[in-house]
Structure formats: C-alpha cells, structure tokens
C-alpha cells in the first residue's frame, strides 16, 4: 500500500492488511496526534486497510 506521512513529507510503500490502529503502531505513530485519510476520505483508527489502499497520515499538531 502507498502511505504518505505528511509530517515528514515522506511517501512509502508497505505491505499491510488490517486495522489502521495496528498500522500506526507499526509506524510508531501515536493515534491521538494524527488523522488518517483512506483513498481520499477521513476514516477512524478502527477501520481496516489493505494493500490496494492509498493512505495519508495527517499530523494534527498546532502550527503556532
């Protein structure tokens, strides 16, 4: 699956199938600090993703 991590402006490929909360844990990302957009739509951490999906992880931290 394609994963874009906005905070690091990093695009990566990863083989994964399962719940987003597990995916975030594997990437060492705290779910309280991000929103996850799956194929263009906002989803919850309890939603599932698979290898065909395109994921964007948005940092929710205030800009200042």
């Amino acid at each position: 699956m394609k994963i874009f991590i906005e905070k690091d402006e990093k695009m990566m490929e990863k083989k994964f199938s399962g719940k987003i909360i597990v995916l975030l844990k594997s990437l060492d990302i705290n779910p309280t600090s991000v929103l996850v957009v799956k194929n263009g739509s906002l989803v919850t951490e309890e939603d599932s993703v698979n290898d065909d999906d395109s994921i964007k992880i948005l940092n929710v931290i205030s800009g200042g």
């Binding site: 906005e6 905070k7 309280t32 600090s33 991000v34 929103l35 957009v37 906002l42 948005l58 940092n59 929710v60 931290i61 205030s62 800009g63 200042g64």
Partner: peptide
C-alpha cells in the same frame, strides 16, 4: 484532533504543518 477533523471535513484550505 477534533479541530483538525472539523477543518478537514469542512474543506478548509489550511496547512497541517507545524
């Protein structure tokens, strides 16, 4: 996280960078 979700769902063109 709620504010970010609101801004995203309302379609505000804002940066999420710090």
């Amino acid at each position: 996280k709620e504010v970010a979700a609101y801004a995203l769902l309302k379609g505000f063109e804002v940066s999420f960078n710090e």
